[in-house]
Nucleic acid binder design. Sequence first.
DNA 1: GATGAATGAGGATTCATTCAT
DNA 2: AATGAATGAATCCTCATTCAT
Lengths: 214, 214, 214, 214
Amino acid sequence: MSASYAPTQAPARTPKGERTAERILDAAEELFAEHGYAGTTLRDVARRVGVRIPSLYNHFGSKEALYGAVLDRGIGPVLATLGEFVDSGSERYRDSALVVARVMEVLGRHPHLPRLVQHEILSGGQHLTPMLRDWIGPLFARAREILEAGPAARHWPADEIPHLVLAFYHVAVGYFTMAPLYGQLGGGDLLDREALARQTHFFTELVRRLLPED
Amino acid sequence: MSASYAPTQAPARTPKGERTAERILDAAEELFAEHGYAGTTLRDVARRVGVRIPSLYNHFGSKEALYGAVLDRGIGPVLATLGEFVDSGSERYRDSALVVARVMEVLGRHPHLPRLVQHEILSGGQHLTPMLRDWIGPLFARAREILEAGPAARHWPADEIPHLVLAFYHVAVGYFTMAPLYGQLGGGDLLDREALARQTHFFTELVRRLLPED
Amino acid sequence: MSASYAPTQAPARTPKGERTAERILDAAEELFAEHGYAGTTLRDVARRVGVRIPSLYNHFGSKEALYGAVLDRGIGPVLATLGEFVDSGSERYRDSALVVARVMEVLGRHPHLPRLVQHEILSGGQHLTPMLRDWIGPLFARAREILEAGPAARHWPADEIPHLVLAFYHVAVGYFTMAPLYGQLGGGDLLDREALARQTHFFTELVRRLLPED
Amino acid sequence: MSASYAPTQAPARTPKGERTAERILDAAEELFAEHGYAGTTLRDVARRVGVRIPSLYNHFGSKEALYGAVLDRGIGPVLATLGEFVDSGSERYRDSALVVARVMEVLGRHPHLPRLVQHEILSGGQHLTPMLRDWIGPLFARAREILEAGPAARHWPADEIPHLVLAFYHVAVGYFTMAPLYGQLGGGDLLDREALARQTHFFTELVRRLLPED
DNA sequence: GATGAATGAGGATTCATTCAT
DNA sequence: AATGAATGAATCCTCATTCAT
């Protein structure tokens, strides 16, 4: 079967250069997530990759381009996944528990993305990649529509639905942004398996109480 | 009558120098809130104050000291106010609606503070002024105790109470951090009077549903 | 007489900073004249001034601004002087010998200016300061008018007058641009007193033969 | 018939590699002429050739070597042609009109060469290829001798003959260096057929008036 | 012969800070 | 208290060059 060839061919498909670009993105993602755009230095990125600064320019045209690539690579898939739920709406994902579980799973697998996005949001999204701008608006709009058409309408005044959307967003994302400080203040690691499971359960319960299914 | 004192006292209370320091703090607060520590330049601060850079050093010993002063001045009082609720606990502020209203009022009056703190939190609080470190930990701890001792205990598993505290925190603070981007994406101004009132109402309702008083 | 005060007041009028700016302009003028814009480094300028690179930025906003200032300061007066002749035309400066002598005197006092301008001309004048663009065009135009109205018209076809203007220009300016190489090839110093006097005489004679006064 | 050889020989004479080297020289010639040595980057050259930078090194050992090759290829033939006149002196090229026409023809066919050389001259000829140094000195010397031995001696003082040589040089070369700026200032294209013919005529006349044949 | 990747050296520029005035 | 000038350190970025492929 062809599947057995895959492992052998893989190295051929990822030449040295591509792998370096990937490693740069990895390093940059972590650093941008931790220190934001202004607080991250190409020197830091290069050091973490184990490469000299000018080499970065063989893969990305500028710091800004690197930042954009990080956002695109990291956030694109996440937004896509989230978009799936939102778009398939009342059909496959009618069960809010499923949605919450899926969201937590996706974010838990990419724990710096929320911080990355929060940095952007804090500064008004001046660097927000176009792709992100094109996604985040519609995503919020669609989430709102679904809530307006669903059970939320029976529990919340129409003009507070956007606030509900924002609240869900912040509960979901805030948990991850808080993780480093929380650990540093002695609160334990919010990103370990148990904590994540607890948060998933908690979040599910929270949604259930805010949007009871009668 | 006091009116007659005002003109005379005003200059005495706020001599030119003090007023400059204040203006520097104002400018710095906005800029740090928008761009974070690394993204804010003394040049930016000076320009906004209408003064040359070296003048800043007549009032604050360094960029870091200025940052600390901004955090202290801005966040100290807010934390104090919040601390009041938390500490007086089940007595004066038993009514959660009151707490929410008060929190929203305090944050609404200082809308960049949440962003200021979020920048810190995102980067693991490396600059967090000691005063802030000494406050934020206990604050969370106390909030947790209160919830554990209060009605929350009947509605949530004990080990999820911290998650509940975090959720409240993020709903409260996230609303303000989102304001600039939300407006920029065409969602309207989250900081105008109506929006704030709506959020207050929404937040109150949210708390009520998560912590029903039976 | 007030003239006696001048020496005393001069230091008061030229505070330290202004003098530094002047020294920067001097150094930059020489270097830009020798190596052109691209071939001149701020490091070179700073070294020649005896100052560190960032200090240059206390006086000029950028390399380009410095270059512009050099052109303005150096060439403005020269063009103004030349413009005087040209404009007063057939009146004061009817005598071409006078014009030649004056031009040679002005250029001889600022021997790098011709090279500075030639660098610009070679690259199509991409950096030509606006002031220069506004001068050089009209200057050529006016020179052409004068020649067309004067004796040249009797000696040259109308459509070759522009070529005559260019020829005069190149004879005048080329002499100075050639000086460094000429000396280096063992031809003697074109800028010493005798050589300049010889060139003045030669140039005068050249003009006389090309524009005989009958 | 010779036609039958052509198709076969053409590829042999200009194999792909040689043609690339030629194209590199073409691109470099233009760029060095416009921006000088320091102002020209290998990146620019490569882009104009449609090749990546390292490929340039398959044909020329360094930027400096490329520059030398450009000078050699471009200026060598021109100097050779001029040298012919100069050397054959009073015999074949006694007629100054012929000399002027030939010079204008040669320079008109290689209009960036004058600019290339002027860049060198402006910076004191630091890069002047040895071949160029070996040519330009003797060329000037020989031209001077010829003039000293010819009719010029009757019209000019002996010690001004070098000035006359320089003047001829600058009239000839300056016309071409001025072309881009002249066009840009709205003066028309100095390099089109009519303008060149006019300049040739003008130059001839200029020489005739400075060196009348009695 | 062509090129992707890597890099030492150096380019202009900014930043926080100091000091004399 | 305010500022012009100066500067060490660090910023992003470019350049010419090399080397393995």
